[in-house]
Design a protein around this nucleic acid. Structure first.
Lengths: 337, 337
DNA sequence: CTGAAAGCGCTTACAG
DNA sequence: CTGAAAGCGCTTACAG
């Protein structure tokens, strides 16, 4: 009657099935070693008793928990990053599909928080990490790789020879799609509301805008680019700058939904109809993009596929990186002119 | 050289400190039993070797992992519930402060999801659960209580004699504060944009509006209440109904930030200045409330305190429930008239 | 105050 | 194909 709370232990299953503990273990971990009849009998008892192996015992023996560590960063007030919440959910589901679980932890923002990673490893609380919100020159990939800890990152560190496998979204490709879409609607002068220089993600997205505008023979002059923080307010101010310029753009491409929201707010203030008047696009396809009025054309990040690939990379050490294509989602903020 | 990856085992610490394994264990778990000198010596070696007890081994022995299970629910498209993300972060931090961690999982809502709770328990992957997003007649508290599983809930089930401890926010109190605030600004006719009847949280908030309006001698007639979904669009439609009524309210109290955003959008469309024209308030103080233009007056849920109390209730079985007071955050959407 | 022993529940070589 | 033995790293009574 000891063992799992109400649940059976391997020993109890063995006794009831009339086999040794070893055989029950094999039924679970190496079923091909058992005679089909034995296997059936053992499985029936496992089912009957609702037996599930004790994770601690298994982990102690195999030197692995089924746990994957994931650091949650606090949200800054006024900054919208709903994407990461969606990613976390997708990651959680993908882990379960592999019979693993996510162990959540926090670490001070900015600070790499490597001590926390070290501690979790020393306790053997996790056997791998998923990294997200990687930044330029992020120290984590190198640190983990040096120690031989399995990990995979959602996001690049934008440094040559990045350590370890990663999955990322091709932001430049997404922006090229946006520009092509606007061009097809008749826009010939398109402004860009970006983040400050030096942010890998932001610079990558800007590159897409630049490349596609150039390819289509549209201007990419300095006056068409305004940079700022990832806030609604920054988007509003940036949009004002672009629309007050001598030569107005007819479309505003924002580096993120938050920034695009600011542009929409400015247009509303000025009574300019977003979409039919000046087109606005965002990036990330946050829930707000669908909810806002008019709906915001945006670029959806395939979080489920990202999560799935990140977890695949944890086991498969041969691959190094992969770039996923995001998908353009057209809404009323970019209508036919 | 075996043991933790690079890390030491208890045995190695003991050898180096010249004591038995038992003494090292005591240094960790019952330091008062050791002679101060011995304790210092052992601690020095622990520090030197960077020793951390193996969680699997400890868990196997003590029949407890340091893990607390938390179910993540997927976000519906178009619905904004950023509060739960903030709560999850706070919960994570609060767990760490108690040397525990959050194990994340997903599960279908309602009865079917119980199988996942059962499975986690059978594997001894967690030793407690934190419940959130409880709904009317949520089956989980009763199910867990019956099995003697430690748990605590953020949120009531709104059923008499709810099983197990819970922490919740006094939504009615928050709404009374909102109404008092608007009344002090000179508003004498206040509309309510709510959710559909039957939602415990929504009904509770509506009650606060009703009570305080009544106390201050303001009308609570049916025509002042419009109900709908928790979306921006529903808020926009509801606001239109109230403002098109014969006797217009001068302030719109929304049951959530998402709904309030819809009201703000409608005012913007109609060129009515939110704040100085018609006041609008929300609830939850989501990041958007601070970012929107004008800033949205809202009611902030004390997620850190909620998380802390929920975890306290996990250990302290004497208490049953506690209601926390949210805090009014005034912004430009409710200015002096 | 300190130590030798038992055991938590599992898996992994190794015999038979 | 199946079983007896060892051991993962810790903690908990129990002696001394």
């Amino acid at each position: 009657m000891s063992g799992n709370r109400d649940g059976a232990t391997l020993e109890q299953v063995a006794a009831r099935a009339g086999v040794s503990r070893q055989t029950v273990s094999n039924a679970l971990n190496a079923p091909q070693r058992l005679h089909p009849d034995t296997l059936d009998r053992v499985r029936a008892v496992i089912e009957e008793l609702g037996y599930r192996p004790n994770r601690n015992a298994r982990g102690l023996r195999t030197r692995s928990t089924g746990m994957i560590g994931y650091r949650m960063t606090p949200r800054d007030r006024g900054v919208l990053t709903p994407l990461m919440d969606d990613f976390l959910h997708a990651l959680c589901a993908a882990a379960e599909a592999r019979d693993r679980h996510i162990l959540l932890f926090t670490a001070p923002l900015g600070e790499p928080g490597l001590a926390v990673y070290d501690d979790l490893l020393a306790q053997r609380a996790v056997d791998a990490f998923v990294l997200a919100e990687t930044v330029v020159d992020d120290p984590r990939p190198g640190w983990l790789a040096k120690r031989g800890v399995p990990f995979a990152a959602f996001g690049r560190t934008w440094s040559p020879g990045q350590a370890g496998p990663w999955v990322d979204v091709d932001g430049a490709h997404g922006m090229r799609e946006v520009v092509r879409h606007l061009h097809s609607l008749g826009h010939r002068r398109i402004g860009f509301l970006g983040w400050r220089q030096g942010d890998g993600v932001g610079d990558d997205r800007l590159r897409g805008w630049t490349e596609e505008c150039t390819r289509l023979g549209m201007s990419t002059e300095d006056g068409l680019v305004v940079r700022g923080a990832n806030t609604i307010e920054a988007g509003r101010r940036g949009a004002a700058v672009l629309l007050d310029a001598e030569e107005q753009p007819t479309a505003l491409v924002a580096v993120s939904d938050a920034v695009a929201l600011g542009a929409l707010a400015l247009l509303a203030e000025r009574g300019v109809p977003a979409g039919s008047g000046v087109a606005v696009t965002g990036f990330d396809d946050s829930p707000l993009a669908a909810a806002t009025l008019p709906g915001l054309t945006s670029v959806r990040q395939p979080v489920e596929r990202i999560a799935d690939q990140v977890l695949s990379l944890l086991d498969n050490t041969s691959e190094t990186g992969s770039l996923l294509r995001p998908e353009l989602v057209v809404r009323a903020s970019s209508e036919r002119r």
